[in-house]
Simulated assay, not measured.
Amino acid sequence: MEEALIPVVPMSHTAHIRSHRKPRRSASKIAMRAGVAGGILSTVAVAGASGPANAAEPVTQTLELPTLTADLAAQVAESADATELAAANYELQAERDAAAAQAAKEAKADLAVAKKKAEAKKKAEEAARKAAAERAARDAERVTLAASADVSAPSASASASTPSVTAPASGSVGTVIAFLKAQLGDAYVMGATGPNAWDCSSLVQAAFREVGVDLPRVSQDQSMMGTEVSLSNLQPGDILYWGGKGSAYHVGVYIGGGQYLDAANPSKGVVIQDLSGYPASGAVRVL
Results as ranks from 00 to 15, higher is better:
residue 1 M to P: 11
residue 1 M to H: 11
residue 5 L to T: 14
residue 8 V to Q: 08
residue 9 V to A: 14
residue 16 H to N: 07
residue 16 H to E: 11
residue 16 H to F: 11
residue 17 I to T: 04
residue 18 R to L: 05
residue 21 R to L: 01
residue 22 K to F: 04
residue 22 K to M: 07
residue 27 A to N: 07
residue 27 A to T: 12
residue 28 S to F: 10
residue 29 K to M: 13
residue 30 I to R: 14
residue 33 R to P: 01
residue 36 V to D: 04
residue 36 V to S: 07
residue 38 G to S: 15
residue 44 V to E: 08
residue 47 A to R: 01
residue 48 G to V: 05
residue 50 S to N: 11
residue 54 N to Y: 06
residue 54 N to R: 07
residue 54 N to A: 09
residue 55 A to C: 02
residue 56 A to N: 03
residue 59 V to H: 05
residue 60 T to Q: 08
residue 66 P to Y: 00
residue 69 T to N: 02
residue 70 A to F: 00
residue 71 D to I: 02
residue 72 L to F: 01
residue 79 S to M: 12
residue 82 A to I: 02
residue 85 L to Q: 08
residue 86 A to I: 09
residue 87 A to F: 01
residue 93 Q to I: 10
residue 93 Q to P: 01
residue 94 A to L: 13
residue 95 E to S: 11
residue 95 E to W: 05
residue 95 E to M: 06
residue 96 R to Y: 12
residue 97 D to L: 09
residue 98 A to E: 13
residue 99 A to H: 10
residue 102 Q to V: 09
residue 105 K to G: 11
residue 106 E to F: 01
residue 106 E to S: 11
residue 107 A to G: 10
residue 111 L to S: 12
residue 114 A to L: 07
residue 119 E to Y: 04
residue 120 A to I: 05
residue 126 E to G: 03
residue 130 K to D: 11
residue 130 K to G: 06
residue 131 A to L: 10
residue 131 A to K: 13
residue 134 E to L: 15
residue 134 E to A: 15
residue 135 R to M: 06
residue 140 A to D: 10
residue 152 S to C: 06
residue 156 A to I: 01
residue 156 A to W: 03
residue 158 A to P: 00
residue 158 A to E: 14
residue 159 S to A: 15
residue 161 S to R: 14
residue 161 S to V: 13
residue 162 T to D: 08
residue 163 P to V: 08
residue 164 S to I: 08
residue 169 A to G: 15
residue 170 S to P: 03
residue 170 S to A: 15
residue 172 S to R: 12
residue 175 T to H: 07
residue 177 I to R: 02
residue 179 F to P: 04
residue 180 L to G: 12
residue 181 K to L: 15
residue 184 L to T: 04
residue 185 G to L: 10
residue 185 G to N: 07
residue 187 A to K: 14
residue 187 A to T: 08
residue 188 Y to S: 08
residue 188 Y to D: 03
residue 188 Y to F: 15
residue 189 V to T: 14
residue 190 M to E: 10
residue 193 T to F: 02
residue 194 G to L: 13
residue 197 A to V: 13
residue 197 A to C: 14
residue 199 D to Y: 02
residue 201 S to P: 13
residue 202 S to V: 15
residue 202 S to G: 13
residue 208 F to L: 07
residue 208 F to Q: 09
residue 209 R to M: 14
residue 211 V to K: 12
residue 212 G to S: 11
residue 212 G to Y: 07
residue 214 D to A: 15
residue 215 L to T: 09
residue 220 Q to I: 04
residue 223 S to D: 02
residue 226 G to W: 09
residue 226 G to H: 09
residue 228 E to W: 00
residue 228 E to H: 01
residue 230 S to D: 10
residue 230 S to P: 03
residue 232 S to L: 00
residue 233 N to D: 15
residue 234 L to Y: 03
residue 235 Q to K: 14
residue 238 D to C: 06
residue 245 K to M: 10
residue 245 K to S: 03
residue 250 H to E: 03
residue 250 H to T: 07
residue 254 Y to L: 05
residue 254 Y to D: 00
residue 257 G to C: 02
residue 258 G to P: 04
residue 260 Y to L: 00
residue 261 L to C: 13
residue 264 A to S: 12
residue 265 N to E: 04
residue 266 P to W: 04
residue 268 K to C: 02
residue 269 G to H: 06
residue 269 G to V: 09
residue 273 Q to K: 10
residue 279 P to L: 03
residue 279 P to K: 05
residue 281 S to L: 00
residue 281 S to M: 07
residue 283 A to C: 02
residue 284 V to T: 07
residue 284 V to A: 04
residue 285 R to S: 08
residue 286 V to C: 09
residue 286 V to M: 08
